[in-house]
Write a protein that binds this DNA or RNA. Structure first.
Length: 600
DNA sequence: GCCGTTTTCGGCCCGACTGTTTTCAGTCG
């Protein structure tokens, strides 16, 4: 049973307890345990194997005992007893927005819905027949809402639900630009998961500082691409755009904007932890500011904050960068003054992964721009160095001799461009670049490049591009074998995921990290928007183990080189400081690192 | 049921919105 399934099980138990009117803190405890397991960086089952279940926050002796029974026997008697007298059909409804335990229970009981397999569509049919509206606590509106919610839920099941970061970024930008046209808008910020730079975004959250709440909200609700208004209040509104994406707007006056920014940036877990910490100091936090609880029977006055810095300071913390706000130890670190000095965009001195349009006759895609065009862009980005890591020539279509010839020709062409004295009047290009290659690690762990051809590259980036379904052990052996060649320095897109499309393969990270540390190898954060691979949680594990990270845009065009900032976001979410990132090294230090002799 | 620089007992984040109510329950973030 994986973490996702475990979380679902624990939520099911929480829902059952809710119907049974158990102590509400017990219910919360189960929900917290579910959240906690969902956010783990390793499988709970693996932790159980190592006898470490009790190290999971929110899991105490009771739940740990139940999980132990689950992993040993495949079931939990106590859980089965709790849900035994509840209708099975209520549970699938819990995954539909707007349904909690009580509504789900009430509806399946009164409507006598028995089949968990079909309960969702059965409920929709019931709503369409009009037999939900007369039920106490429901009405025409909620009946209609049930139909609409289920219909969009059914659609959502078939297409991917979360946006990639740049996609969400672009939508947000459009709304930000629109809002800024209104003169009453003093300031606009994108917040929520977008501000925290999470790899995929559910809803887009926007905050506005203004003195005219209603006018700004009305202006927002007139945004031309809105399909439907979900809710509107005095301090904000939620809408669905024609493209199906949800936008939440919150407005606040400038002098209280700091608490609003903080609240609306989240994450939820960060905010909960923050409020718990504040409560121990007699402070109650909300999106409006901070109340002092110490004085009894006196009217509580809210202290307002115009900046987040002031808000955090009032709780005795230094300002926490949004990328860290996940309740992963950042609040404790802020209390103890040991927050990391996160790597910044201006620390980045080069890119370690790109594809030009030079035709090596590979079996993967070429880029669209020439070496010169890529170097021109690298110059514009202010880099010290760049890396060409085109795909290796396809093995099946060439003899070794042909491959060597192609590699030789490519090296000569790049060197000619880099060493040429002329041609700099018309266009400014970067003159320092590494001649690398992205080489496939074949299913048996061999590299897809004949040994003599290595002479024509400075170093290699390796990656898995085929046979994704090998076992964890076999995949680990395969990667380590490919990674072992002395000229191979970087493992590209290490988990192989494609966001919303492909999970990626399993690797034994203990072994990978140890290997990297021991042999001076580096893991890539691939900055391609659909990859963002390594993921943030593994980045953090890697640097804890002393493994260095390289940012590579995997650009197939000059324009895509700007994606570096999304990879950088993963690095920051993984707590990376400047020294953790290879790209912050000067050119000469990189040369030394790959043990290259100064060639140019 | 969990947890501990106010505690191993007695606390447990905070407020908004909707729909159905006439003071609130349910759900969400």
């Amino acid at each position: 049973m994986n973490n996702q399934e475990l979380a679902l099980l624990l939520r099911k138990i929480a829902a059952a307890y809710e119907i049974k009117k158990e102590n509400r803190f017990k219910i919360i405890a189960y929900q917290k345990a579910a959240d906690s397991i969902e956010h783990l960086t390793s499988e709970a089952k693996d932790l159980w194997d190592d006898n470490k279940l009790n190290e999971i926050p929110g899991i105490g002796p009771a739940i740990a005992g139940h999980l132990d029974e689950l992993f040993r026997t495949g079931k939990v008697k106590h859980f089965e007893k709790i849900i035994s007298d509840l209708p099975k059909a209520m549970f699938p409804l819990l995954s539909i927005p707007g349904f909690g335990a009580k509504r789900a229970y009430k509806l399946v009981t009164l409507l006598k819905l028995k089949n968990p397999e079909t309960v969702i569509s059965d409920l929709k049919q019931a709503a369409k027949k009009g037999i939900i509206a007369p039920i106490e606590g429901f009405g025409e509106k909620s009946q209609q809402a049930i139909i609409e919610t289920i219909e969009s839920f059914e659609k959502g099941q078939t297409k991917e639900n979360r946006m990639t970061l740049p996609y969400a970024d672009a939508i947000a930008q459009e709304i930000v630009d629109y809002l800024k046209k209104k003169k009453e808008v003093i300031r606009v910020d994108r917040l929520g998961s977008l501000r925290r730079m999470v790899a995929t975004i559910g809803d887009i959250d926007i905050a506005v500082a203004t003195k005219q709440f209603q006018e700004v909200i009305d202006w927002f609700l007139n945004f031309p691409k809105i399909k439907k208004i979900i809710e509107r209040g005095e301090a904000g509104a939620s809408v669905i755009l024609k493209n199906g994406r949800q936008i939440d707007l919150r407005v606040q006056k400038p002098q209280a904007y700091g608490a609003m920014l903080q609240y609306f940036t989240g994450s939820k877990h960060h905010n909960i932890k923050l409020r718990e910490v504040a409560l121990k100091k007699g402070l109650s936090l909300s999106e409006y500011g901070i109340k002092k609880l110490k004085i009894k029977n006196e009217k509580l006055k809210i202290e307002e904050f115009n900046t987040e810095e002031a808000f955090y300071r009032a709780i005795g913390l230094s300002w926490i960068p949004p990328e860290l706000r996940e309740d992963q130890g950042e609040i404790e670190a802020a209390q103890e003054g040991r927050l990391p000095k996160l790597v910044r965009l201006k620390d980045i001195k080069g890119d370690f992964h790109s594809h030009s349009n030079f035709d090596l006759e590979p079996s993967h895609d070429l880029g669209v721009n020439s070496f010169t065009e890529m170097l021109e862009k690298a110059y514009q980005l202010g880099y010290q160095y760049f890396t060409f890591s085109d795909h290796n020539p396809s093995v099946s279509n060439h003899t070794n001799k042909q491959i060597i010839q192609i590699m030789k020709r490519r090296k000569a062409e790049i060197e000619q461009i880099l060493l040429s004295k002329k041609n700099t009047q018309t266009r400014k290009i970067l003159k320092k670049a590494f001649i690398a290659l992205e080489i496939d690690i074949l299913p048996d762990g061999k590299l897809a490049l004949p040994e003599p051809a290595f002479e024509f590259i400075d170093f290699a980036v390796v990656a898995i591009h085929s046979s994704f379904r090998q076992s964890r052990q076999k995949m680990t052996e395969r990667v380590l074998k490919g990674f072992s060649h002395p000229k191979v320095k970087i493992l590209a897109h290490p988990i192989g995921r494609l966001l919303n499309e492909r999970e990626g393969y399993e690797l034994d990270w203990d072994k990978i990290f140890d290997f990297c540390k021991k042999h001076n190898k580096v893991l890539e954060i691939n900055c391609h928007p659909a990859r963002l691979d390594l993921p943030d949680v593994l980045v953090r594990e890697a640097i804890k183990r002393g493994v260095k990270i390289a940012l590579g845009t995997d650009s197939h065009s000059a324009e895509a080189m700007e994606n570096i900032r999304y990879g950088l976001a993963m690095a920051r979410r993984g707590w990376c400081e400047k020294d953790d990132i290879l790209n912050t090294m000067d050119y000469n230090r990189v040369i030394k690192w790959i043990k290259l002799s100064e060639r140019r």
